[in-house]
Design a protein around this nucleic acid. Structure first.
Lengths: 364, 364
DNA sequence: TTGTAGGCGTTATCAG
DNA sequence: CTGATAACGCCTACAA
């Protein structure tokens, strides 16, 4: 089906009819035929900054638009080794809690000419299976909001696929990273609450295998230990509202009915559940009788009904940083791993008592 | 770089080293060379249901795994005309409000062997530009959560790219559709509230060009008109919490300080903003002094602090239906357009008075 | 069952 | 600036 040298250039319309009849796709050869130039000339016209004469360019573009020709990215990527696709690996849970992460990543990457190929995980343990899929698609790079093993990171290196680990700090691993220091966030929150005189703490932890929540818990616990405060009672949650509600009930039940001074929840959504349970089910005054705090500063945490004490996780900045970092890695592979860490920002809110009790300050 | 016929089969290890040195990718030729078979034999081993002998299969798989060979999807798609990618076009706003849509679409499509290539819109008017990108990637189909013009739908047909319009009912257009009847939802809500004796309505509408919100508004308004109730006061919102708060203030201000009987908000998030404003800023009792209702039944609408009167939008079922419909269209193109419409489900909640006032019922 | 050979649609190289 | 020609990595008749 290559254009015959000696045949006259057909009109765009009749050539298009022929293509339709043969059930073919419109290719650069078709455009070349109609425009009366070589196929390579067509190719050059679609490459920014290539050297083509004004006249050729015009004829090619006319032919292309009348045939509705669009270059085939699969064919292009075969030879350029650039697919202009970036894989984003994220758990469904994370996407539900931080939809702005994916939105922002997509927006930032699109700005850099890359599209997001989405790989969602039901559990992080599915990561291995998903990685095998990722390789097939010849993505230019990967942003993974998941906890990778050393072996997994090593495979990225072997395959020379640029990787940015997002929202996870892989301890001791030399992987490019954009994250927020969750451990410090935990410590900061514990410090503030302890300074206000809270002594008996409960923690509603995240799901079992989640690294973000466990870093936060670790930060809280280590800081409390440093301050010689009693060990907090930890119950497991699974990030959702209901587990926040149930978590508070469990903490109280396991404390023989005593309400702790403060409950720290692994995420805002659980904190909101905890708060609603305290106020609406148990009739507790927050923060007078119980302080409740979370992490993330999701939108709902600012709503008037909650006004939650929490730590902001600068998701949008992080997404922008990840897109930027990955983009650099793609253009400029190799080099030492870069870690861009963001500091969490404390939001006072109104669900935790942050000043020492009057009786305590009188002692000064 | 094709394997030389007469050369002895190299060991996997040394061949791999050679590949690494040349900075090439591992191809099926490499596997063939190590396994001592032809390239086509390798190809067949990776095609389910092809005819290969047990022995060949084993040798190929061994060679493949020791070389860490993975087929190149771009090359495959070039010849099979299947990329196993599906484009999902969704506005950032929609993704932020209904993250479960994208999560569920991704999950359902993955189950069918397709991956989501994500195209996010900042405004629906960007659709045209994005479509041009979509064509390049040779996706097998498109799920578009956007309002398409007739010309745009026509282009899908011309290019023979299967299209499912998601969460939009394109009136009078023969496009495959999965949606929830927003107009009916509006009517249903208006009916319930009117039956309970509400007479003075305010509406906080969605953003200007949004079809979902305007269908809802149309449903409400037409039903109120049928019931001979006064025309509602409509103010514009932009879907977020703040615009719900401001919307209520604007309604009251434009009513010379009078609070309406009920405010219907285009989405739950705005309804929550409206509710918080009513309770916490204006000190109104809801639903005694004011009824507030929304649409969607997002997660937060169920939280104890809100317990919103709303209409459930079965997002997950819709996503599953869209994935299913698109998958069928890909395997089986052509045919009449199919519309799968879902009925909204009324959620009573506690923010709207749904029974007639006692004094009114006495009149009977 | 296996190998040969041609093609998918593009970009890159290199003479003219 | 332009046009041949050779890749890119794989699939698929077709012949053996």
């Amino acid at each position: 089906m290559r254009p015959t040298k000696n045949a006259p250039a057909p009109s765009a319309a009749e050539h298009k009819a022929a293509i339709l009849r043969d059930n073919r796709r419109v290719t650069s050869y078709d455009v070349a035929l109609v425009a009366g130039v070589s196929q390579s000339a067509v190719s050059r016209c679609f490459k920014p900054g290539a050297s083509v004469s004004k006249d050729t360019f015009k004829r090619v573009m006319e032919a292309a638009s009348s045939l509705e020709y669009i270059p085939n990215a699969a064919a292009r990527s075969l030879i350029t080794r650039r697919s202009n696709m970036v894989a984003v690996i994220i758990s469904n849970a994370a996407n539900l809690f931080y939809p702005e992460a994916l939105s922002e990543l997509s927006k930032q990457l699109a700005r850099r000419g890359k599209r997001v190929l989405l790989f969602t995980l039901n559990r992080e343990s599915e990561l291995d299976g998903v990685m095998n899929d990722v390789w097939q698609y010849q993505v230019d790079g990967v942003i993974a909001a998941a906890t990778l093993s050393e072996a997994q990171v090593a495979e990225f290196e072997r395959r020379r696929v640029p990787l940015v680990v997002f929202n996870r700090n892989l301890r001791g691993q030399a992987a490019n990273t954009v994250a927020c220091d969750q451990y410090e966030a935990g410590r900061a929150l514990a410090s503030r609450l302890a300074a206000a005189g809270h002594r008996v703490f409960g923690i509603i932890d995240g799901a079992q295998d989640n690294a973000v929540a466990s870093e936060r818990r670790r930060g809280v616990c280590e800081r409390l230990a440093e301050l010689m405060l009693p060990e907090p009672l930890i119950v497991r949650g699974n990030f959702d509202y209901t587990s926040g509600k149930l978590g508070l009930r469990e903490i109280i039940a396991r404390s023989n009915g005593r309400v702790p001074d403060a409950v720290i929840c692994g995420t805002d959504v659980m904190a909101i559940g905890c708060l609603d349970c305290a106020r609406h089910e148990l009739g507790l005054n927050v923060p007078e009788q119980l302080s409740v705090a979370g992490f993330d500063a999701v939108e709902a945490s600012e709503w008037l009904s909650y006004n939650l004490t929490t730590l902001r996780h600068p998701m949008q900045q992080m997404a922008a940083a990840a897109a930027d970092l990955l983009h650099n890695l793609i253009d400029n592979p190799g080099g030492a791993a870069e870690k861009r860490m963001f500091a969490p920002h404390f939001i006072e809110g109104a669900t935790a008592r942050l000043a020492p009790l009057a009786s305590v300050s009188l002692a000064a």
